[in-house]
Structures are given as C-alpha cells and as structure tokens.
Computed example of a mutant assay.
Amino acid sequence: MKKVLVLFKNNADLDLIMKSYLCLKKNFGFDIVPLYIRDITYRTPIRETLVNSGSATELLNEIEDESILKVKKVLQTYNINKELLVQSEVSAETIKTLLKTADLIMLEQGLSLNELFLELLKILYRPVIILRNKPLSFDNISIVSNDGVKINKSVYNFINLFTSSTIENVHVLTWNCDYEKHYLLELLKNKGINGELINFNSKDDTIKNFYFALGKSSLVIMGNLSRSFFFEKITNRTGLNILENINTPIFIG
C-alpha cells in the first residue's frame, strides 16, 4: 500500500488537507501518516518580564494543544483511524527520516514561505504535493516545462506514482522555450498521454498571463526548485513566485 506523509500545523486548513487526502485515497489507495508539527517558538519581547514570558509560553502551549485536538477530531470525522504523530522542533532532517517509509509528502503552503518549507523543497527525496486554497484534483493537469532533466524526472515520477490514473490529456506550458523538439511530449506519448504544448514568451505575453493559465488547472507539475529553469529564465525567483501567485496544488517529483 502506498503511504503519504501529511503535515499539519496550527491554523492549517483542515478541510482542504483532508479533502485532498481523500482524493489520493479514493483514486489511488493511499494510506495516511499524519504528522503534527508543534510550534514551540516564542521570542520574548524586550519589555516582557520573565513572569510575563512564562505566561505567554503557557498560552502558546494551550493554543497548540487545542489545535492538536482539532486535528484529531477531524481525523475521526473523516473516519480515519490513524494515530496523529506529534513532534516539536521538526527539522528537514526529521522529515527526511519519516519519509523513508512513505511514497509521498503532502503539506499546505501558508501565506508566507518559511525557512522549513523552502528547506524541504531543496532536500526532499520523495515527491511532494503542495496545497494552497484549492483541494487536490486530477481533472485538469498542467505541466510547466523547459524540457530539462528535473521536469522530466517529476513527470516520470508522477506517472509511476499514479499508475492507476486514467489521465489521457495534459497541457504543457513553457516560457521562452522555442525548441524544435520537446522531448517531454515524446515521454508522455510513450506513456499513453497526449500533451498539448502551449508556448508563452516575454515578447508577446506577460507573466500574469502565464500565472492565469496555470491557475485554471486543477494540478500543476513542476521540476525541483533548487536549480530550475525558472531561476535562470525569468526573474531568478519565478519558481517561488509560482508558489506565491497561484492557488492550484503543485506536484514536484
């Protein structure tokens, strides 16, 4: 059975996460490994006394306890009989260890790209699904491609991970990629998937048009961000800007 490590934190959109997990369970038989990352970070303001600081820490602990209880109740509501793992001071290395027995990791991207989130994207050796505002769906898939090795790897891992999928058509979006041959299209064809190539370029289009096209998808497949096409081709931050500017779930393999 395939397993997905699902990360929860305080103020997480629990319905978004659970609906996305049920999509994986219903369509591909994934089992869940739920992990709650407890926030113990508290920085004492200059004006606070030690007594006040202690009170604030207690309040933070109470908030975290309530949040953990909410996650447990939501798991019960969705008839998921799994123990919620709770860990404090979670690092990227901790996640790497937990992933040794999982096939996929899924997490919600908050409004800000914190250090742990960005570090995870750099070191993960399993595919990741990043959620933001829209529940996961496989109805309308787009691929952001420069026909490089990293996006080829992501697409290959996606196809192998979701082998029971009935995906027949995908959109392949490019930016300033005027190649005579796009090898990713051939890979898709070999796997029985029709890829429709849609070219965007800085001469005729704006980056907002590009984001808008991606936003119409139900799922976007990207390459790893560490040394991706986007860092080199657009603004040295566009890979991250995509994460900040579209509400569509993203798969990085």
Results as ranks from 00 to 15, higher is better:
Asn11Val: 07
Leu16Gly: 04
Lys19Leu: 15
Lys19Phe: 07
Cys23His: 10
Asn27Trp: 05
Gly29Arg: 10
Asp31Phe: 10
Asp31Leu: 12
Ile37Arg: 00
Pro45Ser: 13
Pro45Ile: 14
Pro45Met: 14
Glu48Val: 07
Gly54Ile: 09
Ser55Leu: 14
Asn61Asp: 15
Ile68Met: 13
Val71Gly: 00
Lys72Glu: 14
Lys73Ile: 09
Lys73Phe: 05
Val74Asp: 01
Thr77Ala: 11
Tyr78Phe: 15
Tyr78Met: 08
Tyr78Gln: 08
Asn79Val: 10
Ile80Phe: 11
Glu83Lys: 13
Gln87Pro: 02
Val90Cys: 10
Ser91Asn: 09
Ser91Met: 09
Ala92Asn: 10
Thr94Ala: 09
Leu104Ile: 06
Leu104Gln: 00
Leu107Asn: 02
Gly110Ile: 07
Gly110Ala: 11
Ser112Gly: 08
Glu115Ala: 08
Leu116Asn: 07
Phe117Arg: 03
Leu118Gly: 03
Glu119His: 11
Lys122Gln: 12
Val128Pro: 01
Arg132Pro: 06
Pro135Gly: 02
Pro135Ser: 07
Pro135Asn: 05
Ser137Leu: 08
Ser137Arg: 07
Ile141Glu: 00
Ile143Ser: 01
Val144Gln: 03
Ser145Gln: 00
Asn146Cys: 14
Gly148Glu: 13
Lys153Ala: 05
Tyr156Val: 03
Ile159Asn: 04
Thr163Trp: 06
Thr163Pro: 07
Thr166Trp: 05
Ile167His: 05
His171Pro: 00
Asn176Ser: 08
Asn176Asp: 15
Cys177Tyr: 00
Tyr179Cys: 04
Tyr179Gly: 00
Glu180Cys: 01
His182Met: 07
Leu185Met: 09
Leu187Gln: 06
Leu188Gln: 04
Lys189His: 14
Leu197Glu: 01
Leu197Thr: 04
Ile198Leu: 15
Asp204Phe: 10
Asp204Ser: 11
Asn209Tyr: 08
Tyr211Gly: 11
Phe212Ser: 13
Gly215Lys: 11
Ser218Ile: 06
Ser218Leu: 05
Ile221Gln: 07
Gly223Ser: 09
Asn224Thr: 11
Leu225Gln: 01
Arg227Pro: 03
Arg227Lys: 15
Ile234Phe: 08
Thr235Tyr: 03
Leu240Gly: 02
Asn241Ile: 05
Leu243Lys: 04
Asn245Cys: 02
Ile246Asp: 00
Ile252Tyr: 03
